[in-house]
């Protein structure tokens, strides 16, 4: 018979307690440090959206008191909310970080992609090419993304270290098993790994963390007055990037954004939530997913996200 070792129990185990946010933060820091240690040219996708803001905050913590040891990359659709670009630039300056901008406009100008036409044209699809070109041009071998598994069904099956072939594609049926906290970053030249340190966070966790950390976020996440119109069950902002169709009546409303994407396809929700605490209360009570509520791009089909991800989307 063998003796099975039993770990002796420390009697004061309960004293060594961590809150769930602390646990999630600690896991995300661990992931970022693994990447910084094992890859030559990582980059962090920073859009000014709340998930990337949290990711950036965690990067700041992971390497403190040193600066973040990799650049940030913004895939700029050109259809921006000015508040978000303003926020991005301030944050980059504060952290003395390096920002790489991959521009969809440039991809259009150089003929890499063709702009969609018509009133429902969106640059969302085009971003994938710009992103992959940006990764290739900068020879990034690991790219941090702020995606969470609770966002969407295809994402629920994504690894923390998600392997991409030389075409940037994701093969959901051929993923590496991911065990314990032992991440496999093995890749060949031209291939890269997408890394999702916030995989295990929910929308509510993100907001609670923003509140706990008192990090500033762009003002459009809070209730404000804006001219909007209804389309496909969502409220889109009147902006130079969308054509209001006949029968679509613009009106002013108090709204806020739950996600920040391309201004042409990101919807606002009617809300009075003016502070982070209000938002938390609202999110906790909400019965519709953030993507369902505010992203026209995911409504196309049940597999819309999976298809875009296969091609190399965020």
């Amino acid at each position: 018979m063998t003796t099975v070792l039993e770990p002796a129990r420390a009697t004061d185990a309960a004293a060594y307690h961590l809150s769930h946010l602390h646990l999630l933060e600690s896991e995300a820091i661990h992931i970022m440090r693994e990447v910084a240690a094992e890859f030559e040219r990582p980059a962090l996708l920073f859009s000014g959206g709340k998930d990337s803001i949290v990711m950036l905050r965690i990067a700041q913590k992971a390497f403190w008191p040193a600066r973040i040891p990799f650049p940030l990359m913004h895939v700029d659709t050109g259809h921006n909310f000015p508040e978000v670009i303003d926020y991005r630039d301030r944050r980059v300056a504060e952290l003395q970080a390096r920002l790489v901008v991959a521009s969809v406009q440039e991809s259009i100008d150089t003929g890499r992609v063709r702009e969609q036409t018509g009133p429902r044209a969106s640059r969302n699809q085009l971003q994938t090419i710009t992103l992959l070109d940006g990764i290739e041009a900068n020879r990034f071998d690991a790219v941090f993304g702020g995606a969470r598994r609770d966002e969407e069904k295809a994402r629920a099956k994504e690894r923390v270290f998600s392997f991409r072939d030389e075409f940037g594609q994701w093969d959901p049926k051929n993923q590496r098993p991911e065990l314990w906290n032992l991440y496999n970053g093995k890749h060949r030249q031209g291939e890269h790994i997408r890394v999702f340190p916030l995989s295990n966070w929910t929308e509510l966790d993100i907001w609670q963390y923003i509140a706990r950390e008192r990090v500033e976020i762009p003002s459009i996440y809070y209730a404000h007055r804006r001219e909007v119109f209804a389309r496909d069950g969502m409220l889109l902002a009147v902006s130079p990037y969308v054509t209001v169709l006949d029968g679509e009546e613009p009106f002013e409303a108090t709204v806020r954004y739950r996600t920040v994407g391309d201004a042409s396809c990101t919807g606002a929700v009617v809300s009075d939530a003016a502070t982070v605490e209000d938002v938390i209360a609202e999110v906790a009570a909400t019965r519709i997913t953030e993507r369902g509520a505010t992203r026209a791009d995911d409504k196309v089909s049940e597999a819309a996200m999976e298809d875009r991800k296969r091609e190399g989307y965020f």
Partner: peptide, 23 residues
Amino acid sequence: LTDGLRAEREQGITIDVAYRYFA
């Protein structure tokens, strides 16, 4: 609800580990 991939829905089987969150 849990079968996230197209192949899973088409074949009515679950292929891969899926992570769910609740509180």
